[in-house]
């Protein structure tokens, strides 16, 4: 199809699983520093915010302590642990804040 970029296997990052759509997750502050990236992609077919945090924790053990204390946000709302994070959602990891 013209105008539609087809995924290429050479672009799939390390750790990417083929059983779910890639979910782009924004990272901030200490989490981004720990992971070394501002965004990561994760295979995701849907699940809870707690499950998403768990997957990130498994994939980035160096950031585990901070991830345990981080919230998951979808769009302009914080998720509770039991909230569903749909595929293709606008997702961010929000570590403990320090504004002011």
């Amino acid at each position: 199809m013209l105008g539609v970029r087809q995924p290429r296997f050479s672009c799939i990052p390390d750790g990417f699983l083929m059983d779910g759509r890639p979910l782009t997750i924004m990272l901030f502050a200490g989490v981004a520093e720990c992971v070394g990236q501002r965004e990561v992609e994760l295979a995701w077919q849907g699940g809870t915010a707690a499950e998403l945090r768990g997957q990130l924790r498994d994939r980035y053990p160096a950031a585990a302590s901070l991830l345990d204390r981080s919230a998951i946000a979808v769009g302009e709302r914080y998720c509770r642990d039991e909230d569903q994070v749909p595929p293709e959602a606008d997702v961010a990891v929000i570590p403990p804040v320090s504004g002011g």
């Binding site: 502050a29 204390r69 981080s70 914080y78 929000i94 570590p95 403990p96 320090s98």
Partner: peptide
């Protein structure tokens, strides 16, 4: 980076 203990 400054991070507390409390989940936001």
């Amino acid at each position: 980076w400054v991070h507390g203990e409390e989940r936001p």
